[in-house]
Design a protein around this nucleic acid. Structure first.
Lengths: 339, 339
DNA sequence: TTGTAAGCGTTATCAT
DNA sequence: ATGATAACGCTTACAA
């Protein structure tokens, strides 16, 4: 291949070299049924294309078809590994089908601006994760295939984790270890999933006849720093709890930090349960005891649901929430005999 | 706004409503100098656009201009947080300039296929991180603005971290704590940066008159599992080292795991130094002692360099490597008096 | 089975 | 300062 003119090679070039019309090249490359183009021609076209290094121009195709084979993924912040995991899961599935994904942190500008930007790029669909769609102007998503993650809406289909069960599992685990003084660390949030986690947790405690003291339910941002500060406050209490359930894994990691700083041993002096099941939770030592809501799978399912919608297949019947699983790591143990 | 016809609103619609030609709308929206269009018309166009909810079609623009305002980002695997951090850094910078980035893990298919896929989407530029461009067919990157991260090439500009200095810093830190029996855990790799880290480390030890026993230089994959296995092997040695330098943070986290499993206390019984400075290293308890090569900044600089190239500004003179910094966490301490 | 030709929604080059 | 009009590279009737 000569150094090549700077110009891109187009289907026209291929057509010329193969001695066919440009339309034929198009037919060959858009995977038309064999009936549409003779095997001999087809072969010649491929040969010419290979020789020229031709690659169909996706942008031109997008313009005429009105589909860009591009999916937008909107999430609050990539700082939280949970979203990275979900994005990765979605990414894998979509890429396999020839789609490309544009990840947009809504944090950097308003959700509406973010969506508008994606729209301008003619995206075919949108996966929205825990962003509170209900707060967006209703028309912002018109004429778009949308799938939600961890959010309830009667307008859009979505996938959700069984967040309430996650909270229950955490509570049961701690109860079964013998804890009675159990605290909660998490945000007072709009996020559907986080609220449900807390509710499940509270419900299960209640069923066991336990009601955490109000000082043991601490509102902190869903971040490492939030967890650190929350745990610090708990430890400063006159009667600290023996265990704590954290709304997500980042908070739990922060709680671990605070314990180390205060020279409280985990799990001997304090049991900590997280919730998410992010990769990071498995990297730390000891591994975090956490309820795995399977973020990767959540993302993957959202992607599949979106693909179904796009291909016109009726989105599969509203699915049950994705099952969750308790991962017992090294941060929980029975409470120390108090004297 | 009425429920709206399903059709997208185009510049033609805006033109009609504003009583101007379509071309004028285009002028207004492509930010033509005020001289080109009267303030009155301009205002009417904007009004019409707002009323209709018009958003210029980026795909159409890309087709005619030959630029898509899309950047490709190719990296080995998103499983390693280092790449996520770098990608995030690049993302931020690019988005600010109206670019969108498509992240592609080369792992999922061959590097060439990956690049071809990105090309087909008319990307304007490519950031390649630690992929070994030299192994790609030379023409694969023709007519593309390319910037490399942590890789040397005389064909493409790039940004690199001062990897050799990183290795030196780690060695000096351990030496100054009094360690003499120092091991190394890392892959036998092609990756430019990882090789330099090891070299810097070795050079500095040598300067101190120290040469690690060959059993203390263990080749393991640059993953958590690699680190775990490597450390396990070191601990099984008849005379284990008192400290270890890991080629990257994942390996260090794996090493931590192995120590915990073997009931060796870190840092009392074993000092561990990582290299990368990924976010995750700060989340764990104790925080990892590591050499921060500033992955975020690396990504950001690569992005800026690419923008310079795209806008025709001569890429700034080949820059010095990005400075690195030792972060002393809780995984290093003086060696225990060996009786 | 293959070719011709009309767009897709912009930008850009001319005229006016 | 604005309006026609020709690309951009492809898909898709429709014709041959």
């Amino acid at each position: 291949m000569p150094p090549g003119p700077s110009r891109r090679v187009t289907s026209r070039d291929v057509a010329a070299r193969a001695g066919v019309s440009q339309a034929t090249v198009s037919l060959v490359f858009s995977g038309a049924p064999p009936s549409r183009v003779g095997p001999a021609t087809r072969e010649r076209v491929f040969a010419a294309a290979r020789a020229l290094g031709y690659e169909p121009n996706v942008v031109a195709r997008a313009l005429v078809q009105g589909r860009s084979y591009t999916i937008g993924l909107v999430m609050p912040a990539l700082r939280d590994p949970f979203f990275i995991d979900a994005a990765t899961g979605a990414q894998r599935v979509l890429r396999e089908q020839g789609y490309v994904v544009i990840v947009a942190e809504a944090e950097e500008s308003s959700p509406e601006r973010t969506v508008a930007m994606l729209r301008a790029r003619q995206i075919d669909g949108l996966i929205i994760d825990a962003m509170g769609v209900s707060t967006m102007p209703p028309t912002a998503l018109d004429n778009l295939a949308v799938v939600l993650i961890d959010e309830r809406s009667d307008r859009w289909p979505g996938v959700v984790s069984d967040a309430e069960e996650a909270g229950r599992l955490a509570a049961r685990h701690l109860l079964s270890l013998g804890h009675r003084d159990i605290a909660f660390l998490g945000p007072l949030t709009e996020a559907h999933a986080l609220r449900l986690r807390e509710r499940g947790f509270a419900v299960e405690l209640q069923a066991a006849g336990i009601a955490p003291r109000s000082e043991h339910v601490r509102r902190v941002p869903p971040t490492v720093e939030g967890g650190r500060a929350g745990m610090q406050a708990l430890l400063a209490d006159s009667a600290p709890p023996t265990a704590v359930f954290c709304a997500n894994d980042l908070v739990a990691l922060g709680a671990l930090k605070a314990c180390a700083y205060a020279r409280r041993q985990v799990p001997r002096d304090m049991s900590i349960v997280g919730c998410d099941g992010i990769e990071t939770a498995r990297l730390v030592t000891p591994e975090l005891t956490t309820v795995d809501v399977r973020p990767r799978e959540l993302g993957a399912r959202a992607a599949r649901l979106l693909l179904d919608t796009l291909s016109g297949r009726a989105p599969r019947a509203p699915r049950k929430p994705l099952g969750v699983e308790l991962l017992v790591g090294g941060t929980t143990a029975p409470p120390r005999r108090s004297a």
